[in-house]
Amino acid sequence: MENLLKEAQEALLKAQDKTQLQEVYNLYLSKKGKVAGLMAQMKDLSPLEKPKFGAKVNVLKQTLEQDYAIALDRVQHNSILSELQKDKIDLTLPATKLKVGTLHPLTIVQKEIEEHFISMGYLIKEGPEVERDYYNFERANIPQDHPARDMQDTFYINMDWLLRTHTTAIQTRTLESYNGQTPVKVICPGKVYRKDDDDATHSHQFVQIEGLVVGEKISMADLKGTLELLAKRMFGESRVIRFRPSYFQFTEPSVEVDVSCHICNGKGCSTCHQTGWIEILGAGMVHPNVLKMAGFDAEKVSGFAFGLGVERVALLKYGIDDIRHFYTNDLRFLSTFTRFE
């Protein structure tokens, strides 16, 4: 009986597929199988031996049936596995590409600046690109005879209308819309136009972003703190800024703002012309004439304003060598701006 068990178990282990296993089953466990044969021997035994023998055979049968079930699982599993071999694929073939488009680099930079200021409670204000001479110049404290108003520099449509030359036109409109009420905290982005011949560093159309805050006791120090945060956001946490006195009609005092060079960390390189600094913004305290013209009490409130060219920031940030790329819209150029940053 022990031999039979051993022999049957070995046969079960050897069986490689369902057919072989069925053969083993037929040989040992079927009605005519060897286990059934053992049962048949019982009739020759004494009544005393019969129950003992019967119990032994039952154990044997149960053991083999369990082993059979295990073997069945095994061969079925093996057979599925060998079936799946047919499904083998070349994992290195190209993926099904999900093409995602790109925002224009000028949009990316503009949105980054907008979102930075929105997080500090600023509103985004816009205005018309075909603008009144009045809002573009007069209200920006640029008098009638000023060179900036010459035909040479400005695209005029007629005596009263022109293509705005700076987003200061949005500021003057926005100031007026506040009816002398503070606080004013706005960012003014938009396309602007100047009569420059297009070349690697000039474009007759470009994007400006200006910022404007008016309230009680707004100071130059507030301007500096605000622009420090902007510089860090745009060019990295370790950036610092410096103010150089300058002159703009819209502001008094006025400053040019340099940011420490993000390429060389201020050590001096070709990007910053070995100075360690890059001139990025013009800024200052809103001229009292501007505030008065827009209906604010210049004795009680003050404000700061700043402006930057989006192209210039994008050129510096991404190392672009020619401003015309922004308007040629070469797909190889556009496709560069494809990841989160």
Binding site: I118, K224, G225
Partner: peptide, 19 residues
Amino acid sequence: YHNLKGTLPLMPMTLGGYD
């Protein structure tokens, strides 16, 4: 302006955002 310490405007809170 090199010694001027940057500060942020002290004014009533405003809600920022896109229109």
